[in-house]
Write a protein that binds this DNA or RNA. Structure first.
Lengths: 215, 215
DNA sequence: GCCTGTGAAGCTATTCACAGCT
DNA sequence: AGCTGTGAATAGCTTCACAGGC
């Protein structure tokens, strides 16, 4: 059993490595060294080796990692046995961007249903995904075996939507609303708070300018 | 001088506290205890006290923090003396979501120009923001004194756009493209990688389900 | 020589726990 | 009694540095 829970930073980097490996494979590259992958990912070589270690895969000191095999090893850790279905709530600009972005991506993880409270946006298909009214949420989530929810609704509705998704059986949430969600401990929440991120970037951008000006 | 660089997690949380405080103020609340703010923000009370300490503000043991004053103290740290201008590159669904979201927000930080390579999307105003063709980027960034860039373009264009923004004088980037950017050390980059985030949520959602199933 | 895998060290971030105050 | 501010302890993450292998 190597699937004791990995740290979440590690999981994030593994996801990135896999995409980089897939890129390499397309370009016909068959082997890669930790320092090469590190450079592409913007991390240190030691970090890459630690992360690879966590997947249970071992490379060769002479040839480095086999691109194909490492990608498979990461997949075994990240993907698990069954395919996972995702529900998107909120089909505004952000929600549509998500649909466009994930349509026809990894077969192991796909958005299979969208929901919105606006009657003008429901009962149609966007990027191959059926858009339902909110009232159908618990039924569809249960029927489709959805385990992950993406919250792309206005702040005021976020908590309520989260609660509904959790009640319907979802155990992971990606939250774009700039408000912390109150959720039971068995639910994993990842916040994608654009406001906070932008303020953070502004803060450090300013630090950089000041340093340059001051020196 | 209390403006030695704060850790970036701290900056992120301060941004969140400020929004929560603004909410409290609207509701007429004048004082708040660390444990109350902590609950609202989803962190521990000790964490809140540490973060507040970093701003230089002190509360009272009897009444807690004064909402108004704490918000002001956070502002003094986060906002700096002058207003900061932001450029958005890429006016697809995601870019438009950003424009809608940030139009008329904090006066200290606002998107003042957008850029796109598609001629059909330029030379008009969306949510009060003028949309220019890519060729105008370096001129407008310089003229408007823009220090922060938001990258909302397809993966293939991201690196090139980042380079152009940096050449024009930007020192902070918010990157929505799912690829790491190669940037000089004086530039701060914050990645908002939706692919990675969603895979991470899926991983931990699965862990939760398994734990429940297994127990 | 240059790689990987990894124990140990180093760093950073968070939490504990309590003195001091009202 | 219940709060804040904070030194000290802890936990978590990253990097160092080197043994082992080709």
């Amino acid at each position: 059993m190597l699937d004791k829970r990995l740290p979440d930073r590690t999981v994030g980097r593994l996801s990135l490595y896999r995409r980089l490996l897939s890129e390499l494979r397309k370009r016909g590259v068959s082997h890669v060294y930790s320092h090469e992958l590190a450079k592409a990912a913007g991390v240190t070589a030691a970090q890459v080796r630690r992360d690879v270690m966590a997947t249970g895969y071992s490379g060769s000191p002479t040839r480095g990692y086999e691109v194909e095999e490492l990608a498979a090893s990461i997949g075994k850790v990240l993907d698990g046995p069954a395919r996972q279905n995702v529900a998107l709530v909120g089909v505004g600009n952000l929600g549509r961007a998500m649909l466009a972005y994930f349509s026809g991506r990894r077969p192991n993880l796909s958005i299979v249903a969208a929901f919105d409270s606006d009657p003008g946006r429901v009962n149609r298909v966007i990027n191959g995904v059926r858009c339902y009214p909110m009232g159908e949420l618990s039924r569809v989530v249960a029927e489709e075996g959805i385990t992950v929810g993406v919250i792309a609704v206005p702040t005021t509705a976020a908590q309520e939507v989260a609660a509904a998704l959790i009640r319907a059986g979802v155990t992971g949430l990606l939250n774009f609303a700039p408000t912390p969600l109150h959720t039971p401990p068995h639910v994993y929440v990842q916040d994608m708070d654009v406001t906070t991120s932008l303020e953070r970037v502004a803060y450090f951008a300013r630090q950089s300018s000041e340093k340059n000006t001051g020196a």
